[in-house]
């Protein structure tokens, strides 16, 4: 078997799946412990909770470790792909993002990578299952026969360093939005189960923090670099192309969230829903526009 970048991304997929299972075990064990603690019925509960607690931290440690290993495989894949793409393209392209396969692989690599920073910073692993599940889904779509895997040299319109800047910053922003989305979903779920306010606040902090860090990058990559590149390549910085418009729609929704948080406060559930809707719009910008609407942005 010939070893190329796709080989690493297959391992990447396996790793994310294993991490997903570990995080899921961690999450269910943790929720069960939370239920035990809030249910002061018997004296035996204390012991049970203790055993349960140990299981929680065991699965949590395994999950983080597996994620780190999977991300390392992703990193090797990205480096390998960069070499492959640069070799056929006659110029050094610092980031392989020239087609759907490569952009999906890059996105699936950045989400868990950035998530790990949040995990360390906020000492919570509750989002892990959603984040690694999402990354697994993305890398599986990329690795499926639906998406061509070949390394192809870049068509004239894509031969610009603006391509790298545009895609890099947009996707880093979107990866942070993924973390915010995961925190929002967990928050809504826990709120429904009647979790403590402190736990919900922690999750709201993560959501807001992820959006606050991601929004400037998303604006820089999507709006600013995208417009400058369009001006350089097509002679128009903005053209109401469906992809551009949907990117702006996502931007609008996050802008509403940021204003609404000032206006309504952080405890308002509408804000959490805005993060969910914003993320769905972001994903639609990517897949929905490619497969349902037509326009100039038909690269990936």
């Amino acid at each position: 078997m010939q070893i190329d970048s796709t080989f690493f991304f297959y391992f990447n997929a396996v790793g994310y799946f294993a991490a997903f299972i570990c995080y899921l075990m961690h999450l269910t064990a943790r929720e069960r412990t939370a239920d035990l603690v809030t249910e002061p019925s018997a004296a035996a509960v204390g012991v049970k909770a203790d055993v349960s607690m140990r299981r929680v931290s065991q699965w949590g440690r395994r999950a983080s470790l597996v994620t780190v290993v999977a991300v390392v495989f992703g990193t090797l894949g990205m480096i390998w792909r960069t070499v492959e793409l640069s070799r056929v393209s006659d110029w050094f392209i610092p980031l392989p993002v020239s087609n759907t396969y490569e952009t999906l692989a890059f996105f699936a690599w950045t989400i868990p990578l950035l998530y790990l920073i949040f995990e360390r910073r906020y000492k919570t692993q509750a989002l892990g299952a959603l984040v690694t599940g999402l990354a697994f889904l993305l890398i599986v779509i990329a690795s499926s026969p639906l998406v061509p895997h070949e390394v192809t040299p870049l068509v004239p319109a894509l031969q610009s360093y603006w391509l790298v800047a545009h895609v890099f910053f947009t996707l880093i922003g979107e990866a942070l939005f993924s973390v915010a989305f995961a925190a929002a979903i967990i928050k809504l779920w826990r709120a429904k189960r009647g979790a403590a306010a402190a736990s919900l606040h922690r999750l709201e902090d993560i959501s807001y923090r992820a959006v606050a860090v991601g929004f400037p990058l998303f604006t820089l990559g999507g709006l600013v670099f995208g417009a400058i590149w369009a001006q350089n390549a097509w002679g128009r910085y903005w053209g109401w192309d469906p992809k551009e418009t949907w990117m702006l729609i996502s931007w609008f929704i996050y802008a509403i969230y940021l204003h609404a948080r000032v206006r309504w406060g952080r405890d308002d559930e509408r804000g959490t829903w805005l993060i969910v809707i914003g993320y769905l719009a972001t994903i639609f910008t990517w897949f929905g526009v490619n497969y349902l609407l037509s326009g100039l942005h038909s690269y990936g």
């Binding site: 109401w240 469906p242 729609i249 609008f252 509403i256 204003h259």
Partner: peptide, 23 residues
Amino acid sequence: VRLAIGLILALTVVSVVGTLLPQ
């Protein structure tokens, strides 16, 4: 701020319509 939220929301809805029909 309320006016800002309302206006951005209206722009969002109109933009969505604009992408559903080729312009």
